[in-house]
Amino acid sequence: MKVLVPVKRVLDYNIKARPKADASGVELAGLKMSMNPFDEIAMEAAIRFKEGGQASEVIAVSCGPQANQETLRTALALGADRAVLVETEVELQPLAVAKLLKALVAREQPGLVICGKQAIDDDANQTGQMLSALLGWSQATFASRIELGEGTALVTREIDGGLETLSIRLPAVVSTDLRLNEPRYATLPNIMKAKKKPLETLTPESLGVDIAPRLTLLKVAEPPARQGGIKVDDVAQLLDKLKNEAKVI
């Protein structure tokens, strides 16, 4: 069974995003970009299935500008067998990405797609579910455990209030939550080896997919600022403030 893992190139999670001066978007120029952390977890899950003999091939895919090749090379260094870039300069929204991935699924025929539950840039939390819907497949989002069986999988999901376990029919789309695994780091020899692994480039046009954005971004802005407060000296002063100033207890 092939496993497809979509990976996104995002602003590194250690960097605080700021609006551009003209409010037209978020400032990214010159800032460190990394693989979306949830996609690292998805990669790790797929690689472990390959190592455990349950997956035959791990294919990393990314949609976006040429710079995404860097993210795909990281995926290859982590253990993906090959990579596909769907290259475009057009701003991609989740529905468009889901359509591109659907076209890639038709080409590659994976038995499982593992993706991150959300990208930490747009925080949309949509693409995996959308892909699953477009394919008419089952889905299991927010996975903290995946157990592959014959034609089915058991997936434990992080939900409000606890954990839910689903039995899903394969092929399926599974999205990862934080507790699924701890992703490995790419080693230097593997980074070298990754340079020789195949990386194919396609375009939305060659896949026949309409990627026109549906949402128009009108502006981005800093959220309402929170007034900084004070430091209190001790528990007694804290209690006094909570009772008499804030009146919350």
């Binding site: 929204q93 989740p94 529905l95 889901a98 925080d123 949309a124 939390n125 949509q126 693409t127 995996g128 579910q129 959308m130 892909l131 699953s132 819907a133 477009l134 889905q139 989002t141 927010f142 992080e158 939900i159 409000d160 549906r214 949402l215």
Partner: peptide, 23 residues
């Protein structure tokens, strides 16, 4: 935008061929 809403709403949007506006 709960664990439940996040789970099924994007499916709805995709099947209707519309964007979802999250959160």
């Amino acid at each position: 935008a709960s664990a439940s809403g996040k789970n099924w709403m994007p499916r709805v949007a995709a099947l209707l061929d519309v964007a979802q506006i999250s959160d």
